[in-house]
């Protein structure tokens, strides 16, 4: 049995179903991410694990122990909130020590453990500052330290980085992941940012409409999205419907998707024509570059093929193709991913 088991968890607010029959297992020390758009139920699911929301049915087990109806404070769970939820009437030190004081530890023991986590989150020297005297990144580190100091069995992170600017966000990402690995801490992270999910997680659970629609390692979820929602949420997938497939490639049922970086783009002249069907295990399209965006190491081309606009990423190591140029696109058939419908 896995360290954390969530089975058949269901929750609704009045008539609105928030999530339904959620099942997953997490191994000890694993970093998993609940990824989905806002309103998909991921935060409510996290709060249910923390015990801050009740559930209608189903169970949550940690190390074999049923914690579904336990008080939040007795679950051994640490949580970092999106809003930090720090106590403004206390200094950083007092904030971190709060949980230990409630456990009635001795002053020396508290000081020792608070100093330990202050070291871990790199906040030494800031402990006597009040919360409003700290920057956003420092506040979030105090919140992290406050959750870590009680040595939780599971760490829950509810979009902890979304209020921070991009640079600090990237730094904290690395910091959180490093600490998590060092402490071998079972962690559930909630985010709507697919890049954050991919860089941090061991496994990603993609949520949509109150369900986990796909569960896998970042590269599995990215390279093999199961349905149109995951494909469009995880990247800039090009999605082809049945009629486009039939017209340009081969007779097909349902939708197919291909990653923008899997498509090969090259300049061609007006005589070149697209060939239907497979050539060298690849399909071929002819179109015009309608828009270019330079993303740094990658150039993103929007290519118009008849009425459809395709996104093609290519490494920024040769001359950038100009807008309006006629180009030929090569789509390896192995990269075309069949998609299930969103409801399956």
């Amino acid at each position: 049995m896995s360290y954390v088991v969530v089975s058949n968890l269901t929750k609704s607010f009045g008539d609105t179903l928030v999530f339904e029959k959620i099942n997953f297992e997490i191994e000890q020390g694993e970093f998993i991410t609940l990824l989905g758009p806002s309103g998909c139920g991921k935060s409510t699911l996290l709060r249910a694990i923390a015990g801050l929301n009740s559930v209608d049915s189903g169970g949550i087990y940690v190390n074999g122990e049923n914690i579904t109806y336990q008080d939040p404070g007795k679950r051994g769970i640490g949580m970092v909130f999106q809003s930090y939820a720090l106590f403004p009437n206390m200094t950083a030190y007092e904030n971190i020590a709060f949980g230990l004081k409630l456990q009635k530890l001795s002053k020396d023991e508290i000081a020792k453990r608070v100093n330990e986590v202050l070291d871990i989150v790199d906040l030494k020297g800031r402990e006597n500052h009040y919360i409003d005297e700290l920057s956003g990144g420092q506040r979030q580190r105090v919140a992290l330290a406050r959750a870590l100091v009680v040595r939780p069995r599971i760490l829950l992170l509810d979009e902890p980085l979304s209020a921070l600017d991009a640079k600090i966000r990237k730094k904290l990402r690395v910091m959180i992941r490093k600490i998590q690995k060092e402490l071998n801490l079972t962690t559930v992270f909630v985010t709507h940012d697919q890049e954050e999910a991919m860089t941090m997680s061991d496994r990603i659970f993609v949520m949509y409409g109150g369900k986990i629609v796909q569960n896998g390692t970042p590269s599995e979820v990215y390279r093999h999205p199961v349905n149109e929602f995951v494909a469009s949420f995880m990247g800039n997938y090009n999605i082809f419907d049945e009629s486009f497939m039939t017209e340009h490639f081969t007779n097909a049922n349902g939708k197919y998707a291909i990653r923008p970086e899997a498509i090969n783009i090259k300049v061609c002249d007006s005589k070149d024509k697209a060939t239907k069907g497979l050539t060298n295990d690849a399909y071929n399209l002819i179109g015009n570059v309608s828009f270019i965006s330079l993303l740094g190491n990658v150039v993103r081309y929007n290519v118009k093929v008849n009425d459809k606009e395709l996104v093609v990423d290519s490494l920024n190591n040769s001359e950038v193709i100009k807008e309006g140029t006629r180009v030929s696109l090569t789509l390896p058939s192995g990269e075309l991913q069949e998609l299930k419908s969103n409801r399956e």
Partner: peptide
């Protein structure tokens, strides 16, 4: 909520 998770009622 944060206080409750840290053991307060």
């Amino acid at each position: 909520d944060a206080a409750k998770l840290l053991g307060a009622n």
